[in-house]
Every structure is written in structure tokens, then in C-alpha cells.
Design a protein around this nucleic acid. Structure first.
Length: 592
RNA sequence: CGGGGCGUAGCGCAGCUUGGUAGCGCGCGUCGUUCGGGACGACGAGGUCGGAGGUUCAAAUCCUCUCGCCCCGACCA
């Protein structure tokens, strides 16, 4: 490919509204262009990376026996009504009517369609297990898209689905995907960790998220280096401290002017924050006021709270809603409150003589004891893990990291098959619901995460497995010396024979522009052909990652690139085998 | 949905406070010179100032409404 015919344009200056490096560089280098909020076109460069990522995913899916297919992006709403999700899911689902007035939805995911196919196609245990996958557009009307390709509204997802006879089969399928995903992200050059996670809107019994480490990550990962275990902070549990046992003292009201925050309160009373109770208010979808109480040194983890009480769509309460429950914001406690669901963190409940609000402006209560002074509806872990907390299993200190979710695996169970009547007859002639799992990877997000992980101040630096071109060929002095164009033509022919793709920059631009663009676009190699390089013996090869440079005979350029590609792939395979993830799935392993 | 910011040429911005000819840099076109680290000169193309309404002799500028985008909090691949 000659660069002059490539459909793209680079930007010399940074786009004003791009914050994340991947967003900024993918825009600047001409890989993507926005069409609207969270809606992007992939330009040919971006599509090339996308296709390479897709191919790696496809190879690993096929390797575990999954079959590629394609399901529609527009679904009849009735199918989603059958599983209840049409009403459960809020405005993030795209809805419209077709010309006949029928309700239709834009696919956010494909559990319904798979379960529908299962009930139509599968009737016997002999037809199980099955695994299918596709690469398909999803529309999710995110309340807030951001970060370029990191978080968008329309995106391509590889979603795979397993269908098994029983839980043991599901466990096996789940392990297959755990294995395949580990291999996929390693091959894509992403450092990821699988963390135990919340099941969210998918439902089901168990889930892992594959997280790429990134300082721009939206999720916080809780990692125990001793146990080699990791969880999303949303569900992570810790070994809680045992509060000193004190005899409960009588309640006592104290004046605490201008102390609506825990910090101010603790400072004013000269006590530690752990001696206070923090009260946080939420309202669920049924407009129920929820009072969540943790110790002053903790924060409420909303996902834990949501799961603990089976709530949906929690949002922070407004001040008037708090007052309607007879509580005073800033000085609140459930003592004397009405009409609220009270959830207390187990640590707070075990702590004696806490300071809590008096529901009177400027006053707090000392020596609050739970449940002596009020009766919680739930006592359960709802505290957010913080740095310094200790591992539930081994007691060692936990480490917190930021990550971006690039893939997830869910044990769905019979959530969808039971609702849709996707059943099979077992050997005994007994009708049973099919057991499902679902497994997603956001392709565009993976591309963005790779860009996040592989760039420098000059531009992108793609791993060879996904680079849009194997090499960027910069021609210098071609107008003066016909040997340059002749060499380029010869190199292009050699590349075709070797199965390599080159981007040849034959523009009439200054060398600085060509080098800068080569570094911005991020091909693994820059091959410079000039009268000088020809006199020196051929072409100059520069490795993008470390700038290592050498002059090699023109005839050896392609074999050098091929050898480097092979070496990188072999290194990745060696690393994967050492970690227990060889090309062929061998044994169950979901530890970690 | 709450908070903050921004919409002026393809990109980055100035002009707005104090209303009166729409500007700068980069990029783009033609010609010439240059040619191993974002070259130089000459000439040139390109804008309903996001949109609608209002105030005014006159609106990019003031007022109202509206649309869009970005960033920070509640969701997810």
C-alpha cells in the first residue's frame, strides 16, 4: 500500500477534547473518527488493527471448539419480554417500532437469541454441549461515553455462548473460556488479570472480568499477591478487623457545630474516624429510602449494597428525600427515623460506642451501639475495600490497582433457558433446562487498550500481532535517485511473497515529516530506503519499540521481519505454556 | 441525570468584556527552490461564527431558547 492512496489523514496537533493517550493517538494518527458521542468510524488503519484483533480472537475461539455464526442486531421486543429484560433494562436499550408498529430493540447482547435458537434446535442431551460465537454490533445507550474507543455506545463485541447439560459441563466450558481469554490477551500484548466480579444485569452464579491494567481504568482491582487471587472492588471481601470489646455506654448527645462531615466530626471530638458511623442515603427504583451505615473510616460499596438487599438502580438520595425520612443530612442516624430500609456494615455493627448523628442540626450522639439503639434490616458487608485492608484468605495486605475491563465470562445457569423454555431430554427421559454461559470481548476496547499499553510520546507502537502494517517504508530522495523507487518496488514484491504488508511513504515530503508519521502510525519497523542506505548496502531498519537501527541488504529485509514476528509469537507461546496455558486446553484451572 | 467546560475554515486557537470590514498558526492547491528528523518563497482556495428567536440603524459579540461535543460523579465489553 502506498501512503498516498491510504484513506486517512494525520493531525499535527493534538485534538483538543481527547484526554486518554489511546484516544488522542488513534485520532491523530488517522485510525478513527467520531461521528457522534460514543459513535466512531474505524478508518482503514483502525479497521486493519480491528481485523487483526478479531483474527486472534477467532483462532482462540475455534481452538476450544466454538463455532462462528452471526445473529441479528435488531430483535423483536417480544423475545426480550419473555425473559423480562425488556422491562428490567432501562434507557440504555435502544427501542423503536418497525413499519408495522411492532416493538423492536437494538441488540445489547445476545443471550435471548441464543436461548431462542437452543429451544428451536436442541431437544436431546446428545446435542450438548454446544458453543457458538459471533462478532456483532452492540448498541448500548451509555449515559456517558468517554475515552475514545474505551467506552462507546456502538461497538463490536465477540460474544460467545456455551450450552451444557449440567453444572459440571458449565464448569468445563467456563474453564475453556478462561483458558482461551488468557491466551487471547497475551497474544494481543495486553497484561491482564482475571478478577472475580459482579454478575450485574446478566445474572448467574459466577463471573470473572479480564482487566487490562491502566491508570485510566474505571475499575479498582483488589489483588492479593500471596494468594494470587484478585477481585473487582465491587465484590471484594476482606478480613475485617475485630473491634476492641467495650462495655456499651449510655447514649449521650453532644454539640458538634459545623461538623457535617466525618473529618470535621472526628477532628472536633478528637477521636479517630473509626469511632464514628458514616451514614449514606440511597433511593432504589421503587423510591424506597435506603440508609447505609459503615464505620467512619470506610466507604459504602454500592454494588455490595445493591446485591445485599436485592435492589435495582440505586441512586444517591436527594436532601428532601432524606428529610422525608425524619433525618437530618450531615447529622443523620436511623435513631428516630422512619420509613427507611437500614443496612449496616458488619464491622460497624460490631463496633461499640460509635458517634452518630442526632438528627438535629449541630448535634451528634455518643455511644451508639447497634442493635441496642436501632434495629437494622440487614447487617452485612457493604464496605468498600481500601488500601491497607487484609486478604480474607491469608490476612496479608491487599494491593489496589486500576484496570479496564476488556473481557468477561459469566456462568449464566438457567436464567434465560428456563424463561424461554429451552429444554432437553436427558438419558432418563427427564426434561431439563439447558445450562448457559456467556463470554464477551469488546474488540474496539481491546484495540484502545493495546494502544494504551503500547505507545510513547511520539506515537503508537503496535505489537506485531495487531499492527496495521508489518513495516512502514520511508523513501528518501526518490526524485533524485531512481535506485530508491526501484528498491521500493523490489521490496514490495518480496513482501507479497513473504505474506507481509507494507505501507510505503513515497510522498514528496521532507524526511522529518516521514519519520514523524512513521512513529505516529506505529508500525513495528520503519524501513528507510535512500541513496545513502543503498550506498551503505541496502535499507535501514529501525525497530519502533526501542529505536534499534541497522542497515541490512534489501533482500534480507522481509526475512528479518518474518523472523522477528515468529520470535515474538514463540516467546508469547513459551510464556503461556509456562503459565499453564498451552495452545490446546488441557486441564481445568480457574484459580486466580 | 447532577456538576464543570467548550462550539468561529479540515485541525489548534484569537476576536466577544466595550456591537460596526471575520483573523492567526498548521494543514490544503499551483509554481519554483529544497530533500536523513515536522524546509523556504510567491500566489491561492476555504467560514450560513452550532441552530432558532429577540434587542439594535447594525450581532461572532448583548438577551432568551435550543442542539451538539468534551471532562468529573451513578452503568458496562
Amino acid at each position: 500500500m502506498r501512503i498516498g492512496s491510504l484513506f486517512f489523514s494525520t493531525l499535527r496537533e493534538d485534538p483538543a477534547d481527547a484526554e486518554m493517550p489511546s484516544h488522542r493517538l488513534l485520532l491523530r494518527a488517522g485510525y478513527i473518527r467520531p461521528l457522534g458521542a460514543g459513535i466512531y468510524s474505524l478508518l482503514p488503519l483502525g479497521m486493519r488493527v480491528n481485523m487483526h484483533v478479531t483474527q486472534v480472537v477467532r483462532e482462540e475461539m475455534n481452538a476450544i471448539g466454538a463455532q462462528e455464526m452471526l445473529m441479528p442486531v435488531v430483535h423483536p421486543a417480544d423475545l426480550w419480554r419473555e425473559t423480562g429484560r425488556y422491562d428490567q433494562i432501562g434507557p440504555e436499550m435502544g427501542r423503536f417500532k418497525d413499519r408495522g408498529g411492532r416493538d423492536m430493540v437494538l441488540a445489547m447482547t445476545h443471550e435471548e437469541v441464543v436461548a431462542d435458537l437452543l429451544r428451536k434446535l436442541v431437544s436431546s442431551w446428545r446435542q450438548l454441549p454446544q458453543q457458538v460465537y459471533h462478532f456483532q454490533t452492540k448498541w448500548r445507550d451509555e449515559p456517558r461515553s468517554r475515552g475514545g474507543l474505551i467506552r462507546v455506545r456502538e461497538f463490536t463485541m465477540k460474544d460467545a455462548y456455551s450450552a451444557d447439560r449440567d453444572e459440571a459441563g458449565l464448569d468445563h466450558s467456563y474453564n475453556l473460556y478462561y483458558h482461551a481469554y488468557t491466551r487471547i490477551f497475551a497474544r494481543l500484548g495486553l497484561k491482564t488479570i482475571a478478577v472475580a466480579s459482579d454478575v450485574g444485569m446478566m445474572g448467574g452464579s459466577q463471573a470473572h472480568e479480564f482487566m487490562a491494567f491502566s491508570e485510566f481504568g474505571e475499575d479498582t482491582l483488589v489483588i492479593c499477591d500471596s494468594c494470587k487471587s484478585a477481585s473487582n472492588r465491587q465484590v471484594a471481601q476482606v478480613r475485617k478487623a475485630t473491634p476492641a470489646s467495650e462495655a456499651p455506654l449510655p447514649l449521650e448527645e453532644v454539640a458538634t457545630p459545623n461538623a457535617p462531615t466525618i473529618e470535621a466530626l472526628a477532628a472536633q471530638l478528637h477521636i479517630g474516624q473509626e469511632q464514628t458511623a458514616k451514614v449514606v442515603f440511597f433511593v432504589d427504583r421503587e423510591e424506597r429510602l435506603i440508609v447505609a451505615i459503615v464505620r467512619g473510616d470506610d466507604d459504602v460499596e454500592e454494588t455490595k449494597l445493591t446485591n445485599a438487599i436485592g435492589a435495582r438502580d440505586l441512586r444517591p438520595a436527594r436532601e428532601e428525600e432524606i428529610r422525608a425520612g425524619n433525618m437530618v443530612p450531615g447529622y443523620a442516624s436511623p435513631i428516630g427515623a422512619s420509613r427507611a430500609l437500614v443496612v449496616v456494615d458488619d464491622l460497624a455493627a460490631a463496633s461499640a460506642n460509635l458517634v452518630a448523628g442526632a438528627n438535629r442540626e449541630g448535634y451528634h450522639l455518643k455511644n451508639v451501639n447497634i442493635p441496642r439503639d436501632f434495629t437494622p434490616d440487614h447487617i452485612v458487608d457493604i464496605a468498600s475495600v481500601k488500601s491497607g485492608d487484609r486478604c480474607l484468605t491469608c490476612g496479608d495486605p491487599l494491593r489496589l490497582e486500576k484496570g479496564i475491563e476488556v473481557g468477561n465470562i459469566f456462568k449464566l445457569g438457567t436464567r434465560y433457558t428456563a424463561a424461554l423454555g429451552a429444554e432437553f431430554l436427558d438419558e432418563g427421559g427427564v426434561k431439563r433446562p439447558i445450562i448457559m454461559g456467556s463470554y464477551g470481548i469488546g474488540i474496539g476496547r481491546a484495540v484502545a487498550c493495546i494502544a494504551e499499553a503500547h505507545h510513547d510520546e511520539k506515537g503508537l507502537a503496535w505489537p506485531v500481532a495487531v499492527a496495521p502494517f508489518d513495516a512502514h517504508v520511508a523513501l528518501l530522495g526518490a526524485s533524485k535517485d531512481p535506485r530508491v523507487e526501484a528498491s521500493a518496488t523490489a521490496l514490495e514484491a518480496a513482501a507479497v511473497a513473504a505474506g507481509l504488508e507494507l505501507l510505503v511513504d513515497d510522498r514528496n515530503e521532507s524526511p522529518g515529516v516521514k519519520f514523524a508519521d512513521a512513529e505516529l502510525l506505529g508500525a513495528p519497523w520503519t524501513v528507510t530506503i535512500s541513496p545513502r542506505s543503498i550506498d551503505a548496502g541496502g535499507a535501514e531498519m529501525t525497530r519502533r519499540t526501542d529505536g534499534e537501527r541497522s542497515v541490512v541488504p534489501l533482500a534480507e529485509v522481509t526475512e528479518r521481519i518474518v523472523a522477528a514476528k515468529r520470535a515474538e509469537r514463540e516467546q508469547i507461546e513459551a510464556d503461556l505454556s509456562a503459565r499453564g496455558f498451552p495452545p490446546v486446553y488441557s486441564a481445568p484451572s480457574t484459580t486466580g
